[in-house]
């Protein structure tokens, strides 16, 4: 597999104005994420995880520096192209699942495909297939509130995969789930990552996530503290689980 970079950030800085005082959340981030990689961004609360995450997802623009998604500088995109990027290139998974409550699981997964221009029939078939692949073939017609947290997150994963994106961004995907369900979701993400060769980027402080990540980026106070490869991490996980 060719090692193409799917996401590249160059000197990304972001500051927010808190009244009259600028708050520098990100202080120059350079990362390169390859196609098919599974990346975890770790760091304490307030370290800028979510901000960086929004930047990579095209939900926010950097104050300084550049973010390239699939070699396209997102600062150059207009609203329409950004929406298209979100629709076709990026799948989002949230801590709070964020399914549309009035729609069934099937319709939730269909939604991005409808936006993407697929006909209702095609979207329905594909959506059914995706829900089956995440293990929810039996529950396609249930509303989100009739599903458990783990099942809702599975629907969200199916929805994120709807338009065959190149990247899946997962913001604390296991934050609202118990240990066992969280593990199942992580394994499912890993499976999808291998199967569909989609890059997965998670912002998390769930240490279970380390086990499956190809690389872990540690963030602290808006800068990258260190980047660790898989081999160096496994020992640490042992420690944590021993607690």
């Amino acid at each position: 597999m060719a090692k193409e970079a799917i996401v590249r950030t160059i000197g990304v800085k972001k500051s927010f104005m808190l009244g009259k005082v600028p708050l520098h959340v990100l202080k120059g981030i350079d990362i390169e994420i390859l196609k098919g990689e599974y990346i975890s961004i770790m760091g304490p609360s307030g370290s800028g995880k979510t901000t960086l995450f929004n930047m990579i997802g095209g939900l926010d623009k950097p104050s300084e520096g550049k973010v390239y998604i699939d070699e396209v500088d997102i600062a150059q995109l207009d609203a329409y192209e950004l929406a298209w990027l979100r629709c076709r290139k990026i799948g989002y998974i949230f801590q709070t699942f964020n399914l549309i409550p009035v729609m069934s699981a099937l319709e939730n997964v269909m939604l991005p495909m409808i936006f993407g221009g697929l006909s209702t029939d095609d979207a329905r078939n594909k959506s059914r297939m995706l829900l089956e692949s995440v293990g929810l073939g039996e529950r396609v017609n249930h509303k989100p509130l009739e599903l458990s947290g783990g099942q809702q997150q599975r629907v969200a994963i199916a929805r994120a995969l709807a338009n065959d994106p190149a990247i899946i961004l997962a913001d604390e995907p296991t934050g609202n789930l118990d240990l066992k369900t969280g593990k199942e979701i992580i394994n499912l993400l890993r499976e999808m990552n291998k199967e569909k060769c989609v890059s997965i980027i998670t912002a998390t402080h769930d240490l279970k996530m380390l086990d499956v990540s190809d690389r872990v980026i540690w963030l602290r106070d808006g800068i990258i503290e260190r980047v660790e490869d898989r081999e160096n991490i496994t020992i640490k996980v042992g420690e944590v689980e021993g607690e």
Partner: peptide
């Protein structure tokens, strides 16, 4: 608002 935000993340345009 959450629902609207989600739809926008899925690629909904303002006009939708």
């Amino acid at each position: 608002s959450k629902e609207i935000g989600t739809m926008k993340c899925l690629g909904a345009l303002d006009k939708f």
